[in-house]
Write a protein that binds this DNA or RNA. Structure first.
Lengths: 140, 140
DNA sequence: CTTGATTCCGTACCATGGTACGGAGTGCAT
DNA sequence: ATGCACTCCGTACCATGGTACGGAATCAAG
């Protein structure tokens, strides 16, 4: 019995499209197995784990380029280096959260003003966007 | 005296590149003024406010397509409609924050495990990424 | 053996928000 | 009036993570 997979079965097993497998191959994230002359490539079952690894890393916020780095550490022996990558990613994510939190604060404030209907002549949101000053936090 | 601006001065006044002005024109966010035959276009001073409006809206998380919608409400008379746009954007931002917060929690936990060195044989981050469980894709 | 499904491969395209390039025409200052 | 800076315009390109297309070859089931 042969446990090897066609690209279609690999894709289905990993929960991605065939085109995605090809794309990962082009990016060097997944090995392209030997192709018999005039035949189709066969993927080892381990390729499924590989693709899932990539998908999980993406869910943690890693880009495909960063995943490439993680895959070089896949043997689990370079814990320190892996941790550094994770710490850097954590810092970036926290920055994004801070950015978004600021946006949220602004929007919440503006929406509240709108809802209060304090300025029926001119929408507070539009007024803020049209303001002649810089966009600093003049409103919290 | 003539207060009209060349595209270069407009760009500088608004703090963006000339190419960005052109790009906004192509997207219909900024009007393209009349061009005298064999001459250069001249922009009204209000174009500066317009570009700043766009930039401010972007800082609040709106895409250029959404900014197009906001600009249609620029007279400030459609407060309710404007507020709906803002509320929708707020919801999207809160979802993004929730996503990122989950990532942060995961990463923090994994980094802590790494630092504790509880599993010297295999890095906990790598082990998690390599886990044989399903991938639940929350992305849409 | 035939037929329908897959695979292969290169290439183009999607969204997003711009940036870069290049040749020709203008504008302004000296 | 000369020369450099600026403008115009179309087009191509950047990153990111894929998706779509299409013709030819191949595989697998009946």
């Amino acid at each position: 019995m042969n446990e090897e997979l066609t690209i279609g079965r690999l894709a289905k097993a990993a929960g991605v499209n065939v085109e995605t497998i090809r794309y990962y191959q082009r990016r060097g994230l997944v090995d392209e197995p030997y192709k018999p002359l005039g035949g189709h490539r066969r993927y080892a079952p381990s390729a499924v784990s590989r693709v899932r690894f990539i998908k999980r890393a993406q869910q943690l916020g890693f880009t495909l380029e960063e995943v490439t780095g993680l895959l070089r550490l896949e043997d689990g022996q370079s814990c320190r280096e892996t941790r550094l990558l994770a710490e850097h990613k954590l810092a970036v994510i926290e920055e994004r959260i801070a950015d978004l939190t600021r946006m949220r604060q602004m929007l919440k404030g503006l929406i509240a003003e709108c809802a209060a209907g304090q300025r029926p002549r001119s929408c507070p949101i539009i007024a803020t966007l049209s303001a002649n000053s810089e966009v600093t936090d003049r409103r919290k």
